[in-house]
Design a protein around this nucleic acid. Structure first.
Lengths: 159, 159
DNA sequence: TTTCAGAGTATTGTATACAATTAAATTGTC
DNA sequence: GACAATTTAATTGTATACAATACTCTGAAA
């Protein structure tokens, strides 16, 4: 019974994060409604505004998403006029994602819209910082466990 | 320029939460692979193990999910033999979700499996507690903002 | 009793996610 | 240069999420 509580705590933390993530999603969706951007589309644009063009793979590394998610997402962004997808001349495996003129023009508008909606979440910078540090710890731990499980699988195969 | 940093911090926190949520999801999916349960299916089972039967609505309140998500999820759980969906006799609008015998039998197995995989995330109980408290703050703040936006919409309509 | 507003669930349509596979291009190696 | 291994995107299939809508049932008011 002694080790039941921590397990429950972990589960509660997991659910809190899961729930907060959904709420953030909803918040951004509604804040960005005038632009028709979803949260994943928005963070893709953020990365591109910072440094475009990028290949699908490079974008995926930053966003931790694979082509299975990004290809359709980018097609939607293209359809809505935010980006253009151009097969690279030098390496035809790659597709370069460029910003359109509209995207460049609207960047400040989008930023300002987000700025208006930002509430700083009722937290100080220090609190946010410490929370992010803790989240990094959690993520690293989860990666470690996943990695251990991968190794365990390999060992399994040898039997 | 002075208020740019906090906005970026908020965004980074949002992304950290988004990313951690995905990692947790992956962790549970892989831990529960022997049972074929996903994370959302698992938390549905957790609630049901605690107190079944429940209506779709009651389950949705606990999980913060609506019937659009739950109906297909519960159909899959039913197909895999975890639950049965029974239209209520006393109020035919409601569908009661019951545990199957298999679900009752496998409960401890699932718990033990999760227990084995639990790593306590490299955090103390106090750290987890404080993190959850901060997440609650974040979620409340996001709810407040959403609520304000709803009110703003109402005001819009009157013009 | 009839009607009707609201409750509860299901359905439809859109947008992620991600595992697994496919297809095309490039690189490395002989 | 031929060819196997690798890389990069796209595709396919499954599972969430959620808004909007439809449909059925219930309870209350007229």
């Amino acid at each position: 019974m002694a080790d039941v509580n921590p397990v429950l705590l972990d589960e509660q933390l997991c659910f809190s994060i899961y729930s907060a993530s959904k709420k953030f999603n909803h918040f951004y969706q509604s804040a960005l409604a005038p632009f028709g951007l979803t949260y994943p589309q928005y963070i893709a644009m953020l990365v591109l505004w910072e440094k475009a063009p990028l290949t699908v793979h490079q974008l995926g590394e930053r966003l931790e998403l694979d082509s299975g998610t990004l290809t359709p997402l980018l097609k939607r962004l293209e359809k809505q006029g935010w980006v253009s997808r151009v097969r690279s001349q030098t390496d035809e495996r790659q597709v370069l994602i460029h910003l359109t003129e509209m995207a460049t023009t609207k960047r400040d508008e989008v930023y300002s819209r987000i700025g208006q909606c930002q509430t700083l979440l009722g937290m100080t910078s220090d609190e946010i910082d410490s929370m992010m540090t803790e989240l990094v710890t959690v993520k690293e731990q989860l990666d470690t466990v996943s990695h251990q499980r991968l190794i365990a699988k390999e060992v399994d195969k040898t039997n």
